[in-house]
């Protein structure tokens, strides 16, 4: 494992910790998209089915379990927690997730490495992760003055993707025969989706202002 991959994973881990911290400390999930969190849970569950039949390292196993459990925990907070659930604004979080999930499934059934259940679900998870942030970004755009922690959460999530791009470049240069086109193309699209957000996040940070996205 190279430093970019490790830094990417740690940034991903940190983003979730920031999100859980925000929810737990403020007892509010204002500005957090339940739809995105549910999509992430679906991404993790369909991708990490290999927990049941293959083992790569203790590190991988731990991280996979953490991602599944933490997104489950965020969903639980938003849906079930007595105080937090009251702060969820479902009227704003209206993205139609089937418009994301269905095309991803059709694409996974069409473009994959192997037409088996686990491989198609794994490919589906790669495609779905690329677009799963969209409900969250749309919600942020509707929210005037995004709170700092929610902004940081999305920034860290985008940062993790950017570090994965560097990880792939490093692996291409150092590992002969290393290639994974489905992952590269989806990952590049995923990172590109954050560009606009990055621009406004860095601008507001430099001007010392609260983040607000233009509608």
């Amino acid at each position: 494992m190279n430093i970019f991959r490790f830094a990417g994973d740690m940034t991903h881990l940190l983003s979730i910790i920031v999100l859980l911290l925000k929810i737990n400390a403020t007892k509010s999930c204002a500005g957090v998209s339940l739809k995105t969190q549910e999509l992430y849970l679906l991404v993790f569950v369909t991708r990490y089915l290999d927990l049941l039949y293959s083992y790569i390292s203790l590190y991988n196993t731990f991280m996979k379990l953490f991602f599944i459990c933490s997104s489950g925990c965020v969903i639980w907070y938003i849906r079930e927690h007595k105080t937090v659930s009251q702060t969820y604004d479902s009227a704003q979080d209206t993205f139609r997730v089937l418009f994301l999930a269905c095309p991803c499934m059709i694409l996974a059934l069409t473009v994959n490495h192997d037409f088996t259940v686990t491989e198609v679900l794994w490919t589906f998870s790669i495609y779905l992760e690329a677009v799963a942030i969209l409900p969250q970004l749309v919600l942020l755009q509707r929210t005037k003055n995004v709170d700092t922690l929610t902004g940081n959460y999305v920034f860290l999530l985008g940062g993790y993707r950017a570090l994965y791009l560097l990880n792939w470049i490093y692996r291409i240069l150092t590992e002969p025969g290393y290639r994974q086109w489905i992952v590269w193309i989806s990952g590049t699209i995923q990172t590109a989706i954050y560009c606009d957000f990055f621009y406004y996040y860095i601008k507001s940070w430099r001007n010392n202002e609260r983040l607000s996205l233009p509608s």
Partner: peptide, 10 residues
Amino acid sequence: MVDFEGKDEL
């Protein structure tokens, strides 16, 4: 063991 591509990443 990694039996297909990309599966060692998260």
